[in-house]
Design a protein around this nucleic acid. Structure first.
Length: 455
DNA sequence: TCTGGGGTCCTAGGACCC
DNA sequence: TCTGGGGTCCTAGGACCC
């Protein structure tokens, strides 16, 4: 903890929603919700107008829709967010070379590394105000909330105090006066589980936390967490502002609107995720030794399975085959709602053999799956395309069959020769966002008009 | 049809080595 | 037959953050 208030935290207000309102004037002053629009989507950001209706980030989009049906629900334009974010970060870096971005919309700035005459309160206050003005200028009017204090913890708490569009500087020495009445959950690292443990021990506020011994806290929460909380509970925080942090893992995951039960489909999806992980590894000049799959079952239990190979890889085939092999050992009866692939144990080099070829461990070949030609005995099939944002609720009801989609997946119910509907099967579709919505009927089947369907 | 996606860090047990 | 520690690596799960 420093003697002067030289750590600044900046947080862009309702960032994704604010960018949408900036770019589309008709959305200004109206509730806007950015997040997953599928059947299992959650809210990333709600504009302040939407928050009035109780819409919060991490809430399911379904719930947000019921709380605020007239809001605009958008899936997000990450390129626009990234562009705005980069401009903001550039402004911060002009102020100090020591900037630590936490996400697209948040960063710490170490003012001790800035060219400033002094670090007294009037000086840092003026600087923070100027920063906020510059942010608005370079982003076309986005607002930011800023907090300044003697540590990361205090700066972050301060930036929350006067949102949106606020500035709070916490004078050195007054930290505990600010924190004592606050709930323990203001402390970074205190989430629902820790809150509950502390509650059962009668600890609700930071003042409560301050009165309990470090040993007791360690007994309650374990070594690392206990020591960390004891320090933060006394406003002791020496964590430095770190500009560059190296990537530890790269992963891709997806939740599907309908649970998957077809193992071949799961293998195909993992294979495709592996390609995507590989592309991102290669873009970053990275490779890793540990491949992990993540499988979330229908009941939300989550399983991880990993395997470590002798030398780092970035090859899509290796990652894909290892991922598929890991899936083989898992019981997925009951259905799978999420699949993911990740690579960790990263090195920024790839071992090469004497001939300059990349070393790739031998792995069993994945079963081939012809995704374009599903064959179900006696069933009629159709071709179909996926529309961005479409979910199961918007599933097309054809005669005797249903098809809907999740993220990059189309689910088809085949009409069989019998009157019973055929099995439901799902197929992944490449580049889902690029495909237009154009269902094509097959012989004998009628597909209702698109406008009919959406009524 | 409650519950995203991309990360980080910690814990705990077992294998293995010296 | 009885019984060390320490250290590292790996795996699985969980909490947490934005």
């Amino acid at each position: 903890m420093r003697q002067v208030a030289s750590v600044l935290h900046l947080d862009l207000d309702a960032f994704f929603a604010a960018v949408e309102q900036r770019d589309k004037p008709s959305l200004r002053g109206k509730p806007v919700v950015v997040g997953g629009v599928g059947g299992r989507g959650v809210v990333s950001t709600a504009s302040y107008e939407a928050r009035k209706y109780g819409v919060r980030s991490a809430m399911s989009t379904r719930e947000a829709r019921s709380r605020c049906p007239h809001a605009a629900f958008l899936s997000g334009r990450f390129h626009a967010y990234r562009t705005a974010s980069e401009r903001v970060m550039a402004v911060l870096r002009e102020t100090s070379p020591l900037v630590e971005p936490l996400s697209l919309d948040e960063a710490f700035v170490d003012l001790a590394a800035a060219r400033l005459d002094d670090l007294e309160i009037p000086t840092v206050t003026a600087l923070a105000e100027r920063l906020r003005e510059q942010v608005a200028e370079v982003t076309g009017g986005l607002t930011a909330s800023v907090g300044v204090g003697t540590s990361k913890f205090i700066a972050k708490v301060a930036s929350e105090l006067d949102k949106p569009d606020g500035l709070v500087v916490v004078p050195p020495g007054t930290e505990m006066d600010l924190l004592r009445p606050m709930h323990v959950s203001v402390i970074p690292g205190v989430g629902p589980a820790t809150t509950e443990r502390l509650r059962r021990a009668g600890i609700h506020t930071v003042a409560d936390l301050e009165s309990i011994s470090e040993d007791e806290l360690v007994r309650l929460l374990g070594t690392a967490h206990g020591h960390s909380l004891h320090h933060l509970g006394h406003a002791r925080d020496d964590r430095p502002v770190v500009a560059e942090r190296e990537t530890k893992s790269v992963s891709v995951e997806g939740t599907y609107d309908t649970d998957l039960s077809d193992r071949k489909l799961m293998a195909a999806l993992l294979t495709r995720q592996a390609r995507s992980v590989s592309e991102r590894l290669r873009a970053g000049g990275l490779a890793g030794r540990t491949v992990t799959i993540k499988v979330r079952l229908h009941d939300f239990t989550t399983l991880n399975r990993s395997t470590t190979i002798g030398s780092p890889t970035d090859a899509p085939t290796t990652i894909g085959r290892l991922a598929v092999a890991l899936l083989q050992d898992l019981d997925t009866t009951g259905g799978v709602r999420l699949l993911g692939v990740g690579v960790s144990g990263l090195a920024d080099w790839i071992q090469e053999d004497l001939f300059g070829e990349t070393v790739d461990d031998e792995v069993d070949a994945a079963p081939d799956l012809d995704l374009d030609a599903p064959s179900t005995a006696g069933a009629k099939t159709t071709t179909h395309t996926w529309a961005p944002g479409m979910d199961v609720e918007h599933a097309v009801m054809g005669r005797g069959w249903v098809w809907g989609s999740g993220r990059g997946v189309v689910t088809v119910r085949f009409e069989t020769a019998e009157t019973e509907p055929g099995p439901v099967r799902s197929y992944p579709i490449d580049e889902p966002d690029l495909k237009p919505w154009r269902p094509e009927p097959v012989d004998g089947a009628t597909v209702p008009d698109m406008h009919e369907r959406h009524r």
